[in-house]
Design a protein around this nucleic acid. Structure first.
Lengths: 242, 242
DNA sequence: CTGGACAGTGACGGAAACTGTCACCATGCC
DNA sequence: GGCATGGTGACAGTTTCCGTCACTGTCCAG
């Protein structure tokens, strides 16, 4: 992970957490103790009130911050949490995951109304399948974040999306699509779409997509039927959203 | 200037300023236009709503941060979400649950400082076991909410707890305990405690507890050793909190 | 409908920053 | 004293980063 990302993650970890050991942070971020200390120095240099205490029970902490900073949740974070809650519910057949769902509901309720509405609209078009039985080759488990945010913008704005795609055989092609939904089948994410050039439903594995861009000139209305048409029959697919 | 600092500066510049030209940002930060574009890509990849408009009068801007500001989460909600994130991470061996974990970290970051501290202190005394192999008879999967909040108050305030208990054989008794921790073994939750009358560690299934009340006159210091003493040996128990 | 202003992308080689390791000091608690 | 923890300095190998350049796409004005 690039240093910049790590330092920003570190800041988020420190926010709202009390004293944490440098070693724990190092493990959590997958980097050496020394590096964490350097990162902390960077934050201090920016004027953030990071203090440390030596001795057993010590640790570093972020003192009270001036001002209120809003936390921005990305689409994949919401989807993953939601999914996690459901997984854990399924895992132990009883109403175990209910508390997790309640927590999420509160989370959604705390968002500004528009953002919550958007997220709900998105989640209604997210379909969750059973984890892939075979290991999906090369799937990383997280779709490229900027592709997700493009998808978000395209879906919510009702605009087309264009991107470069490399299929399973390694052939590169340029695609123009209407994005109608997402399929999450751990560890891979798929785009459920209508191919504008071929005029038929298509599924694209998100980690094979690159250079996505909005097609301002293409307008469409998201259609659940396209999502359904992209799903193979006979499998227990479930919609994520309510 | 190191990239990390520049990116954080850039974010601060974008906050509280409307549309700015990439060229202007480049001058301001003493770096090339291309580099600014890369930095913007980094911010987008973190899920920040950075948008750009082409044409004269265009520029990039940070959309109003539509984020979480404050949520009140109950202990079981946090525990469940945390657990869910971990489960889903374990379920599909690779970084799948990372997004969930990040989301959760942000969520915790949005909590008021004291509440977050308390929740962390509590989570450090929550132990997660493997799901019960046999169906636990009558366990509902969620402990009585008012018992949880009493537990919270008692643990954080270092006070004793009294309640009525019905054991597996159906015998009713009145108990006075020091609450030292929780054991979560889906679908059941257990109280890990020291029994004040018997003077030894005891485990109580939470759905068999009723009429809990604080014992203002009993003060104690939460002790990890009592938690450990309540766990059967040879099982893979894991602490929830870090 | 043309030119210009501006966002955004891809590629590449030299330069700079970053990282892990190791040794060591300081501090607080038992 | 012994131990756990935060904090610093130095160094070499490696990774990342950066400016440059060429190009595409979009929007607006004239």
């Amino acid at each position: 992970m690039p240093r910049t990302d790590r330092v920003m993650d570190l800041l988020e970890l420190l926010r709202g957490r009390g004293a944490v050991g440098v070693g724990a942070l190092a493990d959590e971020l997958g980097v050496s103790r020394r590096t964490i200390l350097r990162d902390l120095a960077t934050l201090r240099a920016r004027g953030l009130p990071v203090t440390g205490e030596a001795g057993p029970g010590g640790g570093v902490r972020l003192e009270a911050e001036r001002g209120v900073t809003a936390v921005h949740l990305a689409l994949d974070e919401v989807v993953s949490l939601w999914l996690a809650a459901r997984l854990s519910r399924a895992a132990s057949d009883l109403p175990w995951g209910d508390a997790a769902r309640r927590g999420l509901a509160k989370l959604l309720a705390s968002l500004p109304r528009e953002r919550a509405r958007d997220l709900r609209a998105l989640c209604r078009r997210v379909v969750v399948g059973p984890p892939a039985s075979e290991r999906v080759r090369g799937a990383t488990g997280r779709p490229p974040p900027e592709l997700l945010s493009r998808f978000e913008a395209a879906f919510l704005g009702g605009r087309g999306l264009a991107f470069a795609y490399v299929d399973a055989a390694g052939r590169r092609s340029e695609r123009r699509i209407e994005p109608h939904g997402l399929l999450v089948q751990p560890p891979a994410w798929y785009l459920l779409a209508r191919d504008l050039d071929r005029g038929e439903p298509r599924t694209f594995r998100m980690d094979r997509v690159s250079a996505p861009r909005l097609l301002a000139e293409v307008a469409f209305r998201p259609d659940p039927a396209v999502v359904a048409a992209n799903l193979p029959a006979g499998v227990d697919w479930q919609p994520l959203g309510t």
